[in-house]
Simulated assay, not measured.
Amino acid sequence: MIPDKNVLIELAHTKMPFGKYKDHYLIDLPEYYVVWYHSKGFPKGKLGDMLRQIYEIKLNGLEELIRTIKKQYPK
């Protein structure tokens, strides 16, 4: 399945809305922080879905893909 381009663009430009890493892009969150959410449970709603996607991206070593998208499709 090919991900929707707009979903990836939104994911590349979304920032953490709260906590220690508030205003950091989700893709730039430290891996340990995303793994912690994975073990404790992701937030409900869209943010949780996005953090789940970030977890899978980091797990598979695809961070550079999202960083490239962020550069190619500036907001």
Rank of each mutant, 00 (worst) to 15 (best):
V7G: 01
V7T: 13
L8F: 01
L8S: 02
L8C: 07
L8G: 06
I9C: 00
I9L: 06
I9V: 15
I9H: 03
E10F: 11
E10P: 01
E10H: 11
E10N: 14
E10L: 14
E10V: 06
L11C: 05
L11Y: 03
L11M: 02
A12I: 08
A12W: 00
A12V: 09
H13C: 11
H13F: 12
H13Y: 11
H13E: 12
T14I: 14
T14N: 02
T14D: 01
T14G: 01
T14R: 15
K15P: 07
K15F: 08
K15Q: 14
K15M: 12
K15Y: 05
K15V: 14
K15C: 13
K15H: 08
M16W: 13
M16Y: 11
M16I: 10
P17M: 04
P17H: 05
F18T: 00
G19M: 10
G19A: 12
G19C: 09
G19H: 11
G19F: 10
K20E: 13
K20P: 02
K20Q: 13
Y21Q: 06
Y21T: 00
Y21L: 02
Y21H: 15
K22F: 02
K22P: 03
D23Q: 07
D23E: 13
D23S: 12
Y25N: 02
Y25I: 02
L26G: 00
L26Q: 06
L26V: 05
I27L: 12
I27M: 13
D28V: 03
D28S: 05
L29Q: 01
L29I: 09
L29F: 08
L29Y: 04
P30M: 10
P30E: 13
E31H: 12
E31M: 08
E31T: 14
E31I: 08
Y32R: 15
Y32C: 12
Y33P: 00
Y33D: 04
V34D: 03
V34Y: 05
V35I: 14
V35W: 03
V35T: 04
W36N: 14
W36R: 15
W36V: 02
W36G: 10
Y37S: 03
Y37N: 14
Y37K: 13
H38V: 00
H38E: 10
H38M: 04
H38K: 11
S39T: 08
S39I: 02
S39D: 13
K40C: 10
F42S: 04
F42M: 09
F42P: 04
P43Y: 07
P43V: 01
P43G: 07
P43F: 07
K44H: 12
K44Y: 11
K44R: 15
K44L: 12
G45C: 09
G45L: 11
K46R: 09
K46C: 00
K46A: 04
L47S: 10
L47D: 10
L47E: 12
L47R: 04
G48I: 05
G48D: 05
G48Q: 06
G48W: 07
G48E: 04
G48V: 06
D49C: 00
D49S: 13
M50V: 05
R52I: 06
Q53I: 11
Q53K: 10
Q53M: 15
Q53N: 08
